[in-house]
């Protein structure tokens, strides 16, 4: 018995260690090292790092460019929540409860853009919305209206960049939310039909509360993943411009680290991002109880 117990222990370690080693080397140690770097002034190359204490952090909140980027990040979050969470949620409710035919076809078709690279998405939108040679500008010219050059306006650029990620993740989030709706017990829904409760009322009073947990999961996903997804079109189309107007905290971290070589500033921004991530993770685990524990 004892020997099989120690053999089991050995096997457990052997089976878990490939994942554990990769996570340790490429995730846990990097997180700690980023924290360490955030207290130094460094340029990624020089052999010496200067300890500067909390200076990198204070500069985040005093520097006007950093403040602009943080503000943009909040605008991005709000827009992404509307485009990538509320709209797919609304559509998934319609497909689940308000139509009978073609449910599966919509699922299959909506998912298709999720298969494609965001670089393809960025290219397509820069064509569609091209103020000179794009189809939207072409159609608008017929009505005598000119499409403004949206890369010159930070507000329009942010909207366009969000739309690109929306094109990609709409179907993915739709599938997740639709699955969540599918796990609501059918007898509850049938009961409301017998009592002839209007369907929108059934959705509001029964479906939305029951589907809270998966909806919250997609909401967190929308924020954390959405901001990372938007990195690609920013990098391909605007590079954060005009004058940091379409940059967000992710792109600004990258810019500081690999373009401006301000490793300390980049690390401090990354640590702030990580703290926000931890808060969201905590909320998710509290809200979505049980999701994390399916190994039992």
């Amino acid at each position: 018995m004892n020997s099989s117990g120690s053999k089991n222990k050995f096997l457990t370690i052997a089976y878990l260690s490939p994942t554990a080693v990769i996570l340790l080397v490429f995730m846990v140690i990097p997180i700690l090292y980023t924290l360490y770097l955030s207290f130094f002034d460094w340029n990624l190359i020089s052999p010496t790092k200067n300890f500067v204490g909390l200076e990198n952090y204070t500069s985040i909140f005093t520097d006007s460019v950093n403040r602009k980027v943080l503000l943009n990040t909040i605008v991005y979050i709000l827009l992404l929540l509307i485009l990538n969470f509320i709209i797919p949620y609304f559509i998934s409710l319609i497909v689940k409860f308000f139509i009978n035919k073609m449910k599966n076809s919509y699922k299959i078709i909506f998912f298709i853009p999720s298969l494609f690279s965001l670089v393809v998405g960025a290219m397509l939108f820069s064509w569609i919305m091209n103020p000179i040679s794009g189809p939207v500008a072409f159609l608008m010219r017929h009505f005598g209206v000119a499409l403004p050059n949206w890369t010159n306006s930070s507000a329009m650029a942010i909207v366009m960049l969000c739309l690109i990620t929306n094109w990609k993740v709409f179907g993915y989030n739709f599938v997740l939310l639709l699955t969540g709706l599918g796990s609501i017990p059918q007898n509850i829904i049938d009961a409301t039909k017998i009592d002839s409760i209007p369907r929108w009322k059934m959705v509001r009073d029964i479906v939305l509360p029951l589907n809270k947990s998966i909806a919250f999961y997609v909401l967190i996903l929308t924020i954390v993943q959405g901001l990372q997804y938007v990195f690609t079109p920013i990098s391909v189309i605007t590079q954060g411009g005009p004058y940091y107007g379409s940059s967000n905290i992710f792109y600004h971290t990258y810019l500081n680290a690999f373009v401006l070589y301000k490793t300390g500033n980049a690390s401090a921004l990354a640590v702030i991002t990580f703290l926000v991530f931890l808060i969201l993770l905590y909320l998710e685990m509290k809200f979505v109880e049980g999701r994390m524990g399916n190994c039992e």
Binding site: M27, S267, G293
Partner: peptide, 29 residues
């Protein structure tokens, strides 16, 4: 397998899924 701290180890593993790439990109580079 049953082992000590299973739930916690699983929790830590799974929490890493959504860690933003900016947090680890400099050390990994």
């Amino acid at each position: 397998f049953s082992f000590k701290g299973k739930k916690w180890i699983y929790l830590i593993f799974v929490s890493t899924i959504f860690v933003p790439f900016t947090v680890i990109m400099i050390p990994n580079y």
